[in-house]
């Protein structure tokens, strides 16, 4: 059957979601291409090269190595070549970790970074959102005051201060957790808290403010006049309208967690992706840095798409347009 006929037969909601997916996929490709180009050329514009470290290679060997990695080709040709491989899912060999491709290194580090990041995000949402809602529901009550304190502390204390503090208090003094490494699930707790505390504070404040805004609206008054339970009013009627500032923040929250994981992984000596970026950048390991940057970009693009999809799922007025 011809595609136009199929689309014509779908419900408006299905049509919306198909158009949404198509538009987002196109946009994602463009973003990834731009980031790839920018980081490819910027990396090479920085002084020094992958094999110009303190222990200089003998010229004959350097020539062989440069040939192998095509470092003497014109730069646009190198970029074209990189894109070709990228389309096949090949991120190239790591310059400084011989015998490893970038995919190999990512496969080793990503699970750890992803585990910490996911736990941090769940922690930030799982505590920040309910606490913000509860604070707004009982304004100026005990919970509201505690939440206010948490929000201020979470915003004021950066993760490179909070991390060592957590290690000192919970590992060295209380011996509840290991001070570093990632051997058991419990080892995720401290890094996730250190990483998620900042986003938690922001989510808490946004949820509280959003909830207070919505609770003063006419449709909440009307829900009260209907004689609904306070719980129903809070969760069914107020929450969907209050949550959009929190959703808006989830994209930036993911970026903050991604950036913060560089620091937190080194505090807790976790061999995640963060270490590769730092070492790779210092070593001019172009493919490794490129690979990690593109991975981060893809992650943020996907998270932003999910956030926008959630918007549309919650608010019927967005689906209409």
């Amino acid at each position: 059957m011809d595609p136009a006929r199929i689309i014509g037969k779908m419900t408006p909601a299905a049509r919306f979601w198909i158009r949404f997916a198509a538009r987002r996929a196109a946009r994602a490709l463009i973003v990834i291409f731009i980031v790839a180009a920018a980081s490819f050329f910027l990396l090479r514009a920085a002084p020094g090269g992958p094999f110009s470290g303190d222990r200089a290679l003998p010229p004959s060997i350097l020539r062989i190595v440069e040939e192998r990695y095509r470092l003497n080709d014109p730069i646009y040709l190198q970029f074209f070549h990189y894109l070709q491989n990228l389309l096949r899912g090949d991120l190239g060999p790591s310059f400084r970790n011989a015998d490893f491709t970038v995919q190999d290194l990512i496969a080793i580090g990503l699970p750890k970074t992803a585990a910490i990041g996911a736990c941090a995000l769940l922690f930030a949402i799982g505590i920040g959102l309910p606490l913000g809602v509860a604070a707004a529901a009982r304004r100026s009550g005990a919970i509201d005051r505690i939440a206010g304190g948490i929000a201020v502390a979470g915003l004021a204390v950066p993760n490179f201060v909070l991390g060592p503090f957590l290690v000192m208090f919970f590992s060295l003094i209380l011996h509840w957790f290991e001070p570093g490494g990632l051997e058991a699930p419990a080892d995720l707790v401290l890094p996730a808290v250190a990483l998620g505390m900042g986003p938690l504070a922001v989510i808490l404040r946004l949820a509280r403010a959003g909830m207070l805004d919505v609770l003063s609206l006419d449709y909440i008054q009307f829900a009260r006049a209907k004689g609904l339970r306070e719980r129903t009013i809070l969760f069914r009627h107020a929450l969907p309208g209050a949550i959009s500032p929190v959703l808006t923040y989830l994209g930036p929250a993911c970026a903050a967690i991604l950036a913060g994981s560089l620091v937190v992984e080194s505090i807790f000596s976790i061999p995640g992706i963060g270490g590769y970026v730092v070492r790779g950048a210092a070593n001019r390991d172009y493919p490794l840095v490129m690979g990690v940057v593109l991975l981060g970009t893809a992650f943020l693009v996907i998270m932003n798409t999910i956030v926008d999809a959630l918007y549309a799922a919650i608010d019927p007025r967005i689906r209409r347009s």
Binding site: F222, A225, K226, G227, P240, D315, P316
Partner: peptide
């Protein structure tokens, strides 16, 4: 009482109805 024995409607029905439901 509310809704059960006394019902109430307000001036602006557009604002009274929950846009998300």
């Amino acid at each position: 009482i509310r809704g059960r024995r006394i019902g109430m409607v307000f001036q602006d029905a557009t604002a009274s109805l929950n846009p998300y439901l």
